[in-house]
């Protein structure tokens, strides 16, 4: 690990500690939920980051289909994987928040259901990618599937919303429905989570880039060896043979 990523991790860690202080100590408890409302700062920030990550994945997928650049494919893979991590965190924190508040680990709320479907959609995408050998096909299939899945999400959300809804609407078109100190903590947490996301994206893309460098070099060496082997087989009167 180089000093840049070490420095970034330290900086983000420091901001994370400030976020912890704001979320767990500084912000006030809520009238009905009490201290349990503090889970919101992690739950909502994780959900937003997951959504941003899948938006980035969609952008990268479209970019790959239009330009066929490897860079887009690397960002696509990274964004899907990180999006899955944050979706999982959203689901787990959501269940942990729901239990004491709604007295159930899981409810068939549209946002919960959509988030779980989103997780299933993209875990399938990761499995699909991992189970393919051909690199170019793998990249195209991942990009196409990401586009289809992403465009399907609004329809999924609409249909699940028609089905049933009990989720609290803390943030909607009319603004934040909470005191200023809570809104500040929420937004600060979001910024910290976003910085963590950028760092994770950088680390994951770097890993993918190194992996591909290794694969490319191995591939080139393989081709070189094959060509040399072919040359020996197809040219029997080389100087070496003459000497033999």
């Amino acid at each position: 690990m180089n000093w840049v990523s070490k420095g970034c991790v330290c900086l983000v860690g420091l901001l994370g500690l400030i976020d912890l202080y704001l979320a767990l100590i500084w912000s006030p408890p809520e009238a009905q939920m009490g201290d349990l409302v503090r889970i919101m700062y992690f739950h909502v920030a994780s959900a937003w980051i997951a959504l941003i990550s899948f938006c980035v994945a969609f952008g990268a997928a479209v970019g790959y289909l239009l330009t066929r650049r490897q860079r887009c494919d690397m960002v696509l893979v990274a964004a899907i994987e990180i999006g899955l991590v944050y979706t999982a965190l959203t689901l787990v924190t959501g269940a942990l928040w729901a239990k004491p508040v709604w007295n159930a680990w899981w409810t068939w709320d549209p946002r919960l259901t959509t988030t779980l479907i989103l997780w299933f959609l993209f875990i399938g995408c990761v499995l699909l990618r991992a189970s393919m050998e051909d690199g170019r096909r793998r990249a195209v299939v991942t990009a196409v599937y990401t586009v289809v899945a992403f465009l399907d999400v609004p329809l999924i959300h609409l249909s699940v919303r028609l089905w049933r809804s009990i989720h609290p609407d803390l943030v909607n078109d009319t603004g934040f429905h909470m005191p200023g100190s809570m809104a500040f903590t929420l937004m600060f947490g979001f910024v910290v989570f976003f910085l963590v996301y950028v760092l994770l994206l950088y680390l994951r893309v770097r890993l993918e880039w190194t992996r591909r460098t290794l694969a490319r070099m191995r591939g080139q060496a393989g081709v070189r060896e094959t060509l040399v082997g072919e040359a020996y087989r197809t040219a029997p009167s080389t100087p070496m043979d003459g000497r033999r």
Binding site: F120, L121, G124, S131, V141, A149
Partner: peptide, 23 residues
């Protein structure tokens, strides 16, 4: 067609089809 080149095709086809066709 998406799952055509996959080694896990038998499992992945329903796994991808069901969430996508939820609406």
């Amino acid at each position: 067609l998406l799952t055509a080149g996959s080694t896990l095709r038998d499992v992945l086809l329903p796994m991808l089809l069901f969430p996508v066709s939820l609406p």
